[in-house]
């Protein structure tokens, strides 16, 4: 028996919007720790890892560790029917082939339930070690979205280079080239407007902009995004979900022929 009640239901709506374009169907893993997911896109170039810790739910009951396979497009369709202020409860009985989403309006005058068919999904989990990254950048998530969107109109790939002077985003295409440099700036009024660069080693990696643009669908979840990079490793793009968890994206780099 699984029963998860999330007072801030809009978080779940935003999570689905953040992952459904990258992954069509996925297994959600429920355990006493929390509600999580790890899934790769069909080309195995990008991966999304979601964690919603059990403490973040008003009520969290998960009798045994289970994996429930859902079509994310269909799940997003159902969650779109929840109001932004609604409380969302996810329920699944043991052995059932359906999951129920219940939406309650804040004043309890409207209660809806949507039942969705589950699916059997073969999925492999990648073992991603906890690593110290050579460079990490914290920046406003809106700024990162803007950079990815702007550069996509010029080129298909972006080279992200971190030096002690800042982080440089470079692209080139048929019409020309573009460089955007962001410098460390922590002397701002609001911490969410700061750009913070931590660098042990300079790093320069190239990525497909199409995926980075897809990751920015998570922007409504967090004011700040963290980019972590090491030479010859996938980049990690992390959006924290309050103190409840995170959405992390991993993207394999382009490698010189």
């Amino acid at each position: 028996m699984l029963e998860l009640r999330l007072v801030q239901g809009s978080l779940l709506k935003k999570v689905l919007e953040a992952i459904k374009d990258l992954v069509n169907e996925a297994n959600f893993d429920c355990s006493s720790t929390g509600f999580s997911l790890q899934a790769m896109d069909s080309s195995h170039v990008a991966l999304v890892a979601l964690m919603l810790r059990s403490e973040g739910f008003e009520h969290y009951r998960c009798d045994r560790t289970i994996s429930i396979g859902m079509n994310l497009t269909n799940m997003a369709k159902m969650l779109k029917c929840a109001g932004n202020d609604d409380i969302i409860t996810i329920k699944a009985d043991d052995g059932s082939d359906t999951v129920t989403f219940m939406f309650e309006s804040p004043s309890q005058d409207k209660i809806s339930d949507f039942e969705m068919k589950l699916m059997e999904i073969d999925s492999e989990h990648l073992g991603i070690p906890d690593t110290e990254y050579q460079s990490s950048i914290k920046m406003p998530s809106q700024e990162f979205l803007r950079i990815c969107k702007d550069l996509s109109s010029i080129g298909d790939t972006v080279m992200i280079s971190v030096t002690k002077d800042g982080v440089k985003f470079t692209t080139s295409g048929d019409i020309g080239t573009a460089n955007i440099v962001c410098r460390q700036n922590t002397s701002v009024d609001e911490p969410e407007n700061a750009t913070e660069i931590k660098m042990q080693e300079p790093v320069s990696l190239t990525f497909a902009l199409r995926y980075l643009n897809s990751f920015t669908k998570a922007t409504p979840l967090a004011n700040i995004v963290t980019l972590s990079m090491s030479a010859d490793l996938p980049i990690v793009v992390e959006y924290k979900i309050g103190d409840m968890g995170y959405v992390r994206y991993y993207l394999a780099p382009k490698i010189e022929e």
Binding site: L126, G127, E257
Partner: peptide, 14 residues
């Protein structure tokens, strides 16, 4: 000029 790598070349399955 460059090839797209996949995640399985960096991480093993578990």
């Amino acid at each position: 000029y460059s090839n797209q790598s996949t995640l399985s070349s960096f991480y093993g399955t578990r």
